[in-house]
Write a protein that binds this DNA or RNA. Structure first.
Lengths: 109, 109
DNA sequence: TTGATTATTCTATAATTATAGAAGTATGGA
DNA sequence: TCCATACTTCTATAATTATAGAATAATCAA
């Protein structure tokens, strides 16, 4: 993962509403939630939430799909995992003081 | 980890110079590096670097100690690990789609 | 003590990000 | 075709963050 991609993702998570949104969407699973549901859950006006959702999407952490007249957002598991991988591998370089409690099982290619 | 602590840490990592600094300090190990060495390595003027280092320290990702007239910064392994834990546990809730490739070995209490 | 070194704080300015009302764009139903 | 719904984009403003020179503080060495 490029360092610029990583900073962009961290930037997306540096805001309470966005971090809470990602958490909510991970809990929601692949079914996701509509922009309106999210805005209501976050007690945030639609235009503000739309801004935040776009930020999360731009960072590759969530995915948007259109269903009728609503836009359904769901967590982008690949993107989130890439970020975790970046922290554990690229950034921390597999340092045992950091990765010690985690065992990385390489998936068969 | 409080959500506010997490957003603060993500904010610290949302800036290229700071993310690169943390990476450098993790590589450097417990010996760390002085503010001047870091500023030079990052090709950043001392006041700007000082600002960034303070930000990293405030977020609990690095630690500062004074040695003579220089200030030595080193990675705060505990802080970094807490952030990784937050992503894997608090945020992702141990979701297998995210944590799948990692096995968390609980340390004996 | 004087001067050089190392780093931080002060300050001002530039740049970016957040907020949310108003306006605009689909979509679906009566 | 109209109207309501569901969002997004436009726009303006507020708030925060980044940058770096100038000034200041602390340490060491001659």
């Amino acid at each position: 993962m490029e360092i610029e991609t990583a900073t962009q993702a961290f930037s997306a998570l540096s805001q309470g509403a966005r971090l809470a949104t990602l958490k909510m969407l991970i809990k929601a699973g692949p079914r996701g939630a509509s922009a309106g549901e999210i805005a209501e859950a976050m007690k945030t006006p639609p235009p503000t939430m739309s801004f935040h959702l776009k930020e999360l999407e731009r960072s590759g952490l969530v995915h948007a799909r259109k269903e009728g007249r609503r836009v359904i957002y769901s967590a982008d598991y690949g993107g989130v995992r890439e970020l975790i991988d970046f922290l554990l591998a690229d950034c921390c370089g597999g340092d045992r003081r950091l990765c010690g409690p985690y065992v990385v099982i390489k998936e068969s290619a």
